[in-house]
């Protein structure tokens, strides 16, 4: 940890830059949701838009975790121990979405 003034100022700059990015992404997402949903839906391209949201959300998550939560500046192995468990979730998401889809096929009455 350094108390050097320059480093501190740099950090503040990085924080503000990250804030800017987060805001831009959010604005873009909302604009897309409000203006483009109908267009994409009509052309059966909603999946493109949805993938866009997911990628953008992951980008936002990356910014929050790496800069705000400071993980970028921690020992790399710490980051690894935190991120590896998240891959289990990835598998669970895929499996459960597949399941949800099959429930749709099986719904009765």
């Amino acid at each position: 940890m350094s108390n050097e003034h320059g480093e501190s100022a740099n950090m503040v700059k990085l924080i503000l830059k990250t804030t800017l990015w987060l805001s831009i992404i959010t604005i873009v997402e909302i604009i897309a949701a409000v203006l483009l949903t109908d267009l994409f839906e009509r052309n059966n391209m909603l999946i493109v838009l949805n993938s866009f949201y997911i990628i953008m959300s992951l980008a936002k998550a990356f910014f929050i975790v790496s800069v705000f939560m400071h993980l970028k500046f921690e020992v790399k192995f710490l980051a690894i121990t935190i991120l590896i468990p998240m891959t289990f979730l990835l598998f669970a998401v895929v499996a459960l979405l597949a399941e949800g889809n099959s429930w749709l096929q099986m719904r009765n009455y």
Partner: peptide, 11 residues
Amino acid sequence: ITYGALRFSYE
């Protein structure tokens, strides 16, 4: 995940 699974089970 619950949300995702249930959502996929709806038309």
